[in-house]
Simulated scan of single mutants.
Amino acid sequence: MGSVRLDLGLLFLRLGGAGLLLAVHGLPKALHFRQQLGLIEDPLHLGAWPTLGFAVFAEVLCPLLIALGWATRLACLPILGLLLIALLVVHPEWSLEQGQFGWLLLVLFGTLALTGPGRYSLEARLVRRHAAQGGFARALS
């Protein structure tokens, strides 16, 4: 029973975190890309387009992968990088209260990077399917 609760917790964490990041940050940037080009901070001096492109990648594509549970640990890394840059470089003057959403997302995606997606994920399903097919093929030989 404990394993089921843990996997349900990881599913809730994946869907909740991915949904929040996508809705609050990702979709507004993607849907208003041209407008956002004039607003985006460029702390690494890469240019507005590459900076915004990376932000959209980290805040749209990565949360979708995480919600599905596909390449979850890998998909957390761009998000973690983006959050650290935002909190430590772009907004170092923010108090803990002002940056609490970013810090909470950092904890959430850091946890998923450490744990992986859990049993209720596309990754786990494909691993189970592959193992079942391998087991079946061995039984035939």
Rank of each mutant, 00 (worst) to 15 (best):
L20T: 05
L74Q: 08
G16A: 14
V60N: 02
G116S: 07
L27Q: 10
D7C: 07
P28H: 11
V24A: 13
I79E: 01
V24C: 02
F109M: 04
E97C: 02
F109P: 07
L13S: 11
L39K: 15
H91P: 09
L22G: 04
L10T: 07
L108M: 05
L64G: 03
I40T: 15
R14H: 04
L140D: 03
Q35E: 13
L126F: 11
R119K: 12
A48Y: 06
L105Q: 10
M1D: 15
L126R: 11
F12H: 00
I40P: 01
R34S: 13
A113C: 14
L8H: 01
Q35L: 06
A48H: 09
A67T: 00
L44C: 03
G134R: 15
W49R: 09
A71I: 01
F101E: 14
W49S: 03
E41T: 09
A30L: 15
A86H: 08
G47D: 08
L39A: 14
L20W: 10
L8P: 05
L105W: 02
R119A: 13
R34H: 09
P43Y: 00
E59W: 03
L114Y: 09
Q35T: 07
L77P: 00
L65K: 05
W70C: 05
S121E: 06
L31N: 11
I79D: 04
L77N: 01
E123N: 09
G81V: 10
T115Q: 14
G134P: 02
G53A: 14
A132G: 07
G53V: 00
Y120T: 08
G2Q: 13
L44G: 09
A132K: 15
A86R: 09
R138P: 01
V90G: 04
A113I: 02
G81L: 14
R138A: 11
L21S: 02
L87D: 04
F136R: 15
E93W: 05
F54H: 10
I66A: 00
G26E: 04
A58N: 08
H91V: 05
L82H: 15
V56A: 03
G116D: 02
L112E: 05
F136D: 14
P117S: 12
E93Q: 15
E97L: 14
H25L: 07
L11Y: 03
A71T: 01
A124S: 15
A132T: 07
L88M: 08
R14S: 02
T51Y: 01
S3N: 12
D42N: 14
L15E: 00
P78K: 07
P63E: 02
L108W: 15
